[in-house]
Design a protein around this nucleic acid. Structure first.
Length: 266
DNA sequence: AGAAATACCCGTACGC
DNA sequence: TGCGTACGGGTATTTC
């Protein structure tokens, strides 16, 4: 499932494939995939532009074009790949971009949650995002200070992309367990040493996710295998890998939340 | 400020 | 077997 690591993986894979290639045709197969601008403007603007730079910000893929920015959010079931000649369209394809040398950039998204934007100013899409946990300049001290500027439960706060960008439901549960922080702890009760452990945990689970090419859950399988390394997510009733206590599952803000009642104390 | 609910999706898994 | 329903992910939006 496409949380941050998979986006990083896909960005890396697409970089050598797309850089320098030109878009010669566009076919939007599910109109609501396009968040902005209008379909007419999108189709007219994107054709003729070339891919300049491929990157990501949080869970957004950023495809920098000659004169605008194409952002793609994969959400749950989205996937982006370059196909060769003779590609047979899939029923869940949402966007086809024909490339100058005959290739096809395909955005496939079973659940229709994914969105794309074509904008001049990147800030329109990613302007409200919080800091990148993997950015080396982001420190535990900064995390501590941000946590103490709020008084919110840790689980929903870490999921809030304006607070910190890139953590989804799975990685949040894993990071909280890794650092021994209870999901219902209030953010301004976290100590400096806990903030240090938490940042390390966040980076560890994200990097592990990247190494394993993302997680595949819920029958949506696209090659990743981070799901085999979950310590708490989806393991309700099974023993905690650290202490053996059965993992508990509760709902926090409508989201399934998994934790070890022994390792993660209030 | 921020909590909470709702909407968006659809292929599964489940109960009857 | 077929039908109905709950579920899960991330984010925008609305309401409180």
């Amino acid at each position: 499932m496409p949380e941050l690591p998979e986006v990083e993986t896909i960005a890396r894979a697409l970089r050598p494939e797309l850089t320098g290639r030109k878009i010669v045709s566009v076919r939007l197969l599910w109109a609501r995939t396009l968040a902005t601008p209008s379909v007419a403007v999108f189709e007219k603007t994107i054709v003729g532009q070339s891919f300049v730079k491929i990157g990501r910000r949080a869970k957004y893929l950023q495809l920098e074009l000659s004169s605008s920015n194409l952002f793609i959010h994969l959400r749950m079931s989205g996937d982006l790949a370059v196909k060769g000649n003779g590609y047979l369209p899939d029923k869940h394809d949402r966007l086809h971009l024909g490339l100058s040398d005959g290739g096809l950039l395909v955005f496939n998204d079973t659940r229709k949650f994914g969105r794309i934007w074509l904008v001049a100013d990147p800030q329109e899409v990613i302007g409200g995002l919080g800091p990148e946990p993997l950015d080396p300049s982001f420190s535990a001290q900064m995390l501590y200070e941000l946590l103490h500027r709020r008084r919110r439960q840790m689980k929903p706060l870490l999921l809030d992309q304006r607070f910190m960008a890139g953590l989804g439901n799975i990685y949040t549960d894993e990071a909280l367990h890794f650092s021994g922080v209870h999901p219902l702890r209030l953010s301004d009760t976290i100590s400096v040493s806990e903030a240090e452990k938490l940042l390390l945990a966040i980076r560890t689970v994200l990097q592990s996710g990247i190494e394993h090419n993302g997680a595949s859950i819920d029958w949506v399988y696209r090659g990743g295998n981070f799901q085999n390394y979950f310590r708490v997510y989806g393991r309700a009733g099974q023993p905690c890998p650290v202490c053996g206590t059965p993992i508990q599952r509760i709902a926090v803000g409508q989201r399934g939340t998994h934790f070890c009642p022994t390792c993660q104390v209030m």
